[in-house]
Amino acid sequence: MNETATAIDGAITARGIRYSYRGGREALRGVDASLSSGSFAAIIGPNGSGKSTLLRILAGLLPRSGGSLEVAGIDPGTMKSRHRARRIAYLPQDEPEELPFTALELVLMGRFAYQGLLPFDRDEDLTVARECLALVEAQELEDRLLVEMSGGERQRIHLARALAQMPRVLLLDEPSSSLDLHHQIEAYRLLRRLVDEERRTVVVVSHDLNLPAAFAEQVIVLSQGEVHAAGPPLEILRASVLEPVYRTRILEARVEGHPFPVLLPAP
């Protein structure tokens, strides 16, 4: 894992990203975003603001209707799947539950982009897979079937699978939604380590405002398909900025030991 200090830049540069559905409804109306290599960004916003759509477009899994995009040195929309998979890993919000594979088998599948013609698992694939499982604290689950796991355990395995791709850029949609407090923190700490130690770029879409705030350098607020605001958490995660977006009263609470104000919806 630690030998991946390659020269590939993990920067993301997006200009004027647009996306319209077949029916004509515009989900994204010109989104700009700029992340340097080795940074952690959080995308927040209300339901329907286009967060997941944007993430998919960044991952190259959805064709954009307009704008230019460069992720990890390539345009993910035009790159061949295999090459893209080595640079960008994407984790969606839901995954099918009924997977009859074991955790190890699933994580090994993440190594597809690196494997050659012969469909066998090589030693290095096994090593990487086990390391990824260790990173998400799931070594004991290696031989367990996914259908026999809890939601949180499954989510960690899926994260391990994404990590097995050894990507420069990680795009995660609600990566902590099923995790308990301990694992939530561990997941974000892991992501932060990947950014700090290996200069990877991580983008997280999140409903939770506070957790990403503690870890991200940049917060992008989307509202109705446009960037409402973008900048460091200290500036962005303020009631004044967010109340018009979420259209509800937000309380800021100062908590000792926490670097920024904690945001809560007013009951």
């Binding site: 074991t102 088998e105 090994l108 290696e142 367990r144």
Partner: peptide, 18 residues
């Protein structure tokens, strides 16, 4: 690697080789 195959209660399939 510092990671070793764990000994779990359930016997799993491991990886598929030639």
């Amino acid at each position: 690697s510092a990671v070793e195959p764990p000994s779990t209660g359930r016997r799993g399939r491991g990886a598929t080789g030639a």
